[in-house]
């Protein structure tokens, strides 16, 4: 019998586990302490549970951590971890050091369904959702465990297409019984799946980042198929109905494609559609991928685009490219080479 993993369970789920194996109710909190606050790796090490209770737990459950099978280090200090997931699939996680900060960029799915034209993850298609445990394991099982200052859900996958597991993972990371991190240290990035975004904003105080990439509908549709289902104007209408500021921030990600979305007209239209939203824009250098018809904007254009947006009153920064030499930079994560076809495609 395949044993279920304890790691990744919420306090309520641990209460159900305790009841199932005949442990007292308070054992749920004790298990949460062992899982999320202490550095142990087995049920046997949960020494404040009775021996009988631990044996009963082990009958159905395992601790549930997964070690990375590969680590690559960039010349700039960024690391890329390869993790196996259930059902013999793989995901990548990036750890980006910056002065005293260590930011972990976690994946939420194996592959991605969204098919954005500029993204390497999209090219591998979709192979599955990660569980909450598999998401949190990307922080717990890296060498920098315990030193992580920030978490961004910007790795493989669209977080709001795996909403329940993403919300559960945030609960584990931020609740007092879990890692007790401030939600201000967590940012979830979406391409704009409105129902998921709405539920996230209702239930979490973590920051929101939205991939915009063009203020013009037809152009965005060519870059991001999601535009046909959730047009950016509707995404912005939803965002405008929420309060953002110091407690919870919203930022917009904008990859700069040379000769496509980097003109002054784009900057002006961006400023127009974002009017009324207290936000920041992160300009991102495009990292070319195979078969792409897109190219990067040059540095001069990046700077003048940034200056124009800043002059319109929108705080705009250029995100440093990190880990490009190990394919850990924005839009480059992929485990396509490790995907085993489970069935013949339907086309």
């Amino acid at each position: 019998m395949e044993k279920e993993r304890l790691f990744g369970k919420t306090l309520d789920e641990l209460k159900a586990v305790a009841a199932q194996v005949g442990l007292p109710k308070f054992a749920a909190k004790q298990m949460a302490d062992w899982l999320y606050k202490k550095d142990i790796r087995s049920i046997d090490e949960m020494t404040n549970l009775s021996v009988k209770g631990r044996e009963a737990l082990k009958e159905y459950y395992e601790f549930g951590l997964t070690e990375p099978t590969k680590v690559q280090a960039s010349i700039d200090g960024t690391k890329k971890y390869l993790f196996p997931t259930d059902h013999a699939k793989f995901i990548e996680t990036a750890m980006i050091p910056d002065d005293d900060r260590k930011t972990v960029c976690v994946s939420s799915q194996v592959g991605c369904k969204m098919g954005c034209l500029f993204c390497m993850t999209g090219k591998q298609g979709f192979q599955g959702h990660l569980t909450a445990g598999e998401i949190v394991n990307q922080i717990r099982s890296i060498e920098e465990n315990g030193e992580v200052s920030n978490i961004v859900y910007m790795g493989m996958g669209e977080p709001f297409d795996n909403l329940d597991n993403v919300l559960k993972s945030i609960e584990i990371l931020t609740d007092d019984w879990g890692y007790a991190m401030s939600p201000k240290r967590i940012t979830v990035s979406t391409i704009g799946i409105i129902p998921g975004m709405k539920k996230f904003l209702e239930t979490s105080n973590a920051h929101l980042a939205v991939s915009l990439h063009s203020p013009f509908d037809e152009e965005r549709k060519q870059l991001m198929p999601i535009q046909t289902a959730y047009p950016v104007q509707k995404v912005l209408d939803e965002i405008k109905s929420w309060e953002f500021g110091r407690q919870r921030r919203v930022s917009f990600e904008y990859i700069m494609f040379g000769g496509l979305n980097d003109t002054p007209a784009h900057a002006k239209e961006l400023a127009r559609i974002l009017n009324g939203i207290k936000c920041r824009i992160n300009l991102i250098r495009f990292h070319p991928i195979p078969d792409t018809p897109l190219k990067s904007s040059n540095e001069e254009t990046l700077q003048s685009f940034k200056d124009l947006l800043n002059s319109k009153g929108i705080l705009t920064t250029i995100r440093a490219s990190r880990g490009q030499d190990i394919y850990a930079a924005c839009g480059l994560l992929s485990t396509k080479a490790l995907v085993k076809k489970e069935e013949e495609p339907d086309y």
Partner: peptide, 12 residues
């Protein structure tokens, strides 16, 4: 219109 795999492969 179809699965993500079909769309990205066909588009490329």
């Amino acid at each position: 219109c179809g699965s993500p795999e079909m769309v990205v492969e066909t588009r490329d």
